[in-house]
Nucleic acid binder design. Structure first.
Lengths: 255, 255
DNA sequence: CACCGCCTGCTCATAGTTGCGCGATTGTGG
DNA sequence: CCACAATCGCGCAACTATGAGCAGGCGGTG
């Protein structure tokens, strides 16, 4: 049964997973006529690429709706994200102009920014803007743009154009993945152009990423490791990946 | 019921909880065919992730913040506003590009726009944008700008500048007041410049105003009656004011 | 034909998950 | 306020999945 290409096998795997939403390793292996080891390798690879979510015993599709809702909810209360958000917020200099990109991880910064004075926050995320609408000490500027359906972030030429008007001291962003050689990567080509531009103009770049994003590589490159000043992540992050990132010149903060 | 995946089990758990709003550990355990210990572990995990709220004996679903905000705002809408919103939404032409300014009255249009196809909506209101984020048939463009504290609308040069890029068929707006001789007026000088510009470029202008705003005059003038094509209001509006507006060339619709 | 890289499948020590029992904690009714 | 019952968290043992390492097969290349 050697006549199956790796990519073709992964495609079948994904198809099987979509049919039921999830599946365990043994069943998938017998369904495809390969060994469980191969399935594990494939699933790990697909997990790194964000196509599926690996769980003990099998995997489930990382598909838009449920996963997004789950992630959004998780973001609001998860201890890891809260800590990451707090750590990021601490070092926001008073009087600065910062950019906070849309996303669930960055949203965790908001509670810790609430009391700040003389802060200017630029954002392309409606969730961020909403959270800041009650903070009197913070001038919030929403970069315009096209709203992605199901998401709460703004994209497109309008967003990029608006940013030209400002000087950004620090950009705080999350992304699909961060990888020692690939740098900061995104999952969606349509988002990439805007995200890239958002990060380009900033004086300093700080990445907020929970452990699941460390070592993950998406299809589009947003910024090289050289551009990344700091990474804030949680304790579950694989140490060897963090070391590699440190070697690449990224200041890594684990909390 | 031999093998059950961890994530799948939690998903079922959540589903069971949503059905009744809450549930106790033993029932959930027997419903899923696992031990109470496993349910407890799952619930603790889900509690940490903010999906549910753990209480003694069981758990209840924890609703997300943003949805709660939207629901609360939706509940605030009186019958009058709902009817006004519905009447305004009916005549939005398919395939058009419309502007909906921020505000609570205009927000009432959203439920009636949900099913539309090929519609482009421009807005400077975060509440409007938020409500449209789940509508797949509508392209939503958020005009950037500075967020007013306590409000959910965007203002400033950025907003005005963004609007230049578009051709607006119809603008739907609410305001502080509408008066036969003063026209459409606003309450806040800082908002006025932006509001004026927003309405300027539109082909047609539709005003949504409940009875309390009819005949009222604010300090700043936003648009003359000649510019106003249509006014949608409710039955409590003073008829003599409506007649005067009709004489001024405004098409008045009472609902 | 030999060499080499690559993928596959197997083995095994390790890590993770599950269910049960026990003592501690919490809620409830007298 | 106390006693009782339900529930909880934790440690334990059985079981299962996992990832790393290793041998064998396949196809391309000099």
């Amino acid at each position: 049964m050697g006549s199956m290409l790796g990519l073709e096998r992964q495609r079948l795997l994904l198809q099987h997973l979509r049919a039921r939403g999830s599946g365990n390793v043994v069943d998938l292996a017998s369904a495809l006529g390969v060994s469980p080891s191969t399935v594990r390798r494939d699933l790990r690879d697909m997990n790194d690429r964000g196509l599926v979510t690996r769980v003990h015993g099998g995997a489930s599709v990382a598909d838009a709706e449920i996963e997004a809702v789950l992630a959004a909810r998780a973001a609001q209360h998860s201890d890891e994200k809260r800590r990451i958000g707090a750590a990021a917020a601490v070092d926001v200099p008073d009087g600065a102009t910062v950019l906070i990109t849309g996303g669930t991880t960055t949203e965790a910064m908001l509670p810790h920014l609430a009391g700040r004075e003389r802060l200017t926050v630029l954002t392309n995320g409606l969730n961020i803007a909403l959270g800041l609408s009650r903070c009197p000490g913070i001038s919030t500027v929403v970069l315009g743009g096209v709203l992605r359906h199901g998401e709460l972030s703004l994209l497109g030429p309008l967003t990029e154009q608006a940013l030209v008007e400002f000087h950004v001291d620090v950009a705080y962003c999350s992304a699909f993945g961060i990888h020692p050689s690939a740098g900061l990567t995104g999952a969606d080509v349509r988002e990439a152009g805007t995200d890239r531009r958002l990060l380009q103009g900033a004086e300093h770049l700080v990445v907020l990423a929970d452990a699941s994003k460390i070592g993950r590589r998406g299809p589009v490159r947003l910024a090289g490791t050289a551009r990344i000043d700091r990474l804030i992540t949680d304790r579950a992050a694989p140490p060897e990946q963090l070391d590699a990132l440190r070697s690449a010149g990224v200041e890594v903060q684990v909390c």
